[in-house]
Amino acid sequence: MAKRVKEPSQREILASIRKTTEKERVEEAEFERQIAALFEAANWSASRLPDGGRTRPGDLLVKRNDLGRERRYIIDAVSEINPPRLRQAFEDFRHSIEQKKEPDFDEYWLVGQYFIGEPMRKMPRNDRRFRALDLKQLRELLAIPKPKKSKASTRLGKAVLANEKEIYLAIAGLILQIEAKLEALRGELPNSDDGQSRVAREISGFERMKAELERIREMVAAFKKGKAPDQEVVKATKTFRQGVEEWWTNKSGEILTSTAKGAILVSSVGLLALMKADSVAAITAVAAVVNGGAIEKAKKIGRAMKRIGKQALTEEAR
Rank of each mutant, 00 (worst) to 15 (best):
A2V: 12
K6D: 04
K6S: 12
E7N: 07
P8Q: 15
R11N: 12
T20Y: 08
E24H: 10
R25V: 14
E28H: 03
E28R: 00
A29R: 12
A29V: 13
E32Q: 07
E32V: 13
R33K: 11
E40D: 13
A42P: 06
A42K: 06
N43G: 10
S47N: 03
S47Y: 08
P50G: 08
D51S: 13
D51I: 12
R54A: 15
R54Q: 15
T55W: 14
T55I: 15
R56K: 15
R56F: 08
R56C: 13
R56D: 12
P57G: 04
D59Q: 09
L61Q: 10
K63Q: 15
R64H: 11
G68S: 11
E70H: 10
R71I: 04
R71S: 02
Y73H: 06
I74V: 10
I75V: 08
I75R: 00
I75Y: 00
D76I: 07
D76A: 09
S79F: 13
S79K: 10
E80W: 00
I81T: 01
R87I: 07
R87P: 04
D92I: 06
F93G: 01
R94P: 07
H95G: 14
K100I: 05
K101V: 06
K101R: 15
P103Q: 10
V111N: 00
F115G: 00
I116E: 01
G117I: 00
E118Q: 03
E118T: 02
R121M: 09
N126K: 09
R129H: 06
F130R: 02
L133Y: 11
L135H: 06
L138Q: 04
L141I: 13
L142N: 09
I144W: 00
I144E: 01
P147V: 13
S150E: 00
A152D: 02
A152R: 02
A152F: 11
R155F: 09
R155Y: 07
L156V: 05
K158Y: 00
E166F: 10
A170N: 07
I175K: 08
Q177K: 03
E179Q: 09
A184T: 11
L189S: 15
S192H: 06
R198M: 02
V199S: 06
I203H: 01
I203R: 11
I203P: 06
E207Y: 08
L213N: 02
L213Y: 00
E214W: 08
E214V: 09
M219C: 04
M219L: 04
V220S: 08
F223V: 05
K227E: 15
A228Y: 02
E232H: 09
A236I: 04
F240V: 03
R241F: 08
Q242V: 14
G243E: 01
G243L: 03
V244C: 03
W248M: 10
N250T: 15
S252H: 03
G253M: 06
G253V: 06
I255R: 00
L256Y: 01
S258C: 15
L265A: 05
S268K: 06
L272V: 04
A273H: 09
D278W: 05
V280L: 15
A287T: 15
V290C: 13
A298H: 00
K299H: 04
K299Y: 14
K300N: 12
I301P: 01
R303F: 10
M305Q: 04
K306G: 07
K306C: 10
R307D: 14
K310P: 02
Q311M: 11
Q311G: 12
L313C: 02
T314A: 13
E315Q: 13
A317K: 05
A317E: 14
R318C: 09
